[in-house]
Computed example of a mutant assay.
Amino acid sequence: MQTPIRSTGWFVHHEYLRDIGLKAAHWGFCKDLRGTAQISSRTPLPCPRQNAIFGHNLARGQHVDLSFHAQSPPMIPRAALTLGLAGLLPFVYGLATILSPGLAEATIRAIGPRFAGQYVLIAYGTVILCFMSGVLWGFAARGAEQAWTGYALSVAPALWAFFFVGGGATQALAALLTGFVVLLVIDQQFTLWGLTPRWWMKLRLMLTSGVALCLAGGLWLG
């Protein structure tokens, strides 16, 4: 008689798991108490450590929580979300100094003209575009199969900033705006390769929207 291992809304047949042992992290047929759901044999769990623990516990017949297989949207870690949103502040401040001549004048008197108006948008935007090249390089280092393509794409934002951000404020802002839009496409490609965290595109869409809005505002109003 098969003894089910019960968890939060799920159960898995013990005899089947005993046959596949530690490979239960990648293979399995789970039945929901309210229906059925197939776990693909080609879809690993979120990380190798979880794979090992999951398969080990199931093979031993221990109770486990399979609720993470539900297709719930990935949560952005609080640290990444907080620091990412904080990174938008210089963009927002630069746009604010364009909209408010008084704020721009006070900023220039206090800390200098390079921290106001289009200047701060261009300088900080260039820094962030180059910073994202470093982030993508780190992702590329994880993908052996896409090594050459991944590394080439990762340096593209920095090279774009080096060659095209210049020639006056209008041209520089237009180049940055284009660069951040293309960067989002590269982010999506790295996500399709499975090299980014599951929540990565959710965060990148949010931050890129904020950056693009500020750059477009600076381009239009500056």
Rank of each mutant, 00 (worst) to 15 (best):
T8F: 04
T8E: 15
W10S: 08
H14E: 14
E15L: 09
Y16C: 08
Y16F: 14
K23Q: 09
K23P: 01
F29R: 12
F29G: 10
C30D: 03
A37M: 08
T43P: 00
L45W: 00
C47F: 08
R49W: 07
R49M: 05
I53D: 02
A59V: 00
A59K: 02
G61T: 02
G61H: 02
Q62C: 01
L66Q: 04
S67N: 10
S67H: 11
H69Y: 12
A70R: 13
S72A: 14
S72W: 13
P73Y: 03
P77I: 11
A79Y: 06
L83N: 06
L85E: 03
A86E: 04
L89T: 07
V92C: 13
V92W: 12
V92P: 04
L95I: 06
T97K: 09
L99Y: 07
G102D: 09
G102R: 07
L103H: 03
A104E: 10
A110N: 04
A110L: 14
I111K: 08
P113C: 02
G117F: 01
Q118P: 01
Y119F: 09
Y119L: 04
A123R: 11
L129N: 02
C130F: 04
C130N: 05
F131T: 12
L136S: 08
W137R: 13
G138A: 08
F139S: 11
R142H: 15
G143A: 14
W148Y: 14
T149W: 15
Y151R: 15
V155T: 12
A156R: 12
A158I: 11
W160K: 14
F162K: 12
F164Q: 10
Q171C: 09
A172P: 06
A172F: 09
A174I: 09
L183A: 08
D187R: 02
D187G: 05
W193I: 09
G194F: 09
G194K: 05
R198S: 13
W200K: 03
M201L: 09
M201D: 08
K202T: 14
L203T: 06
L203K: 05
T208S: 11
T208I: 04
A212Y: 02
L213T: 11
L213K: 05
L221W: 15
L221G: 05
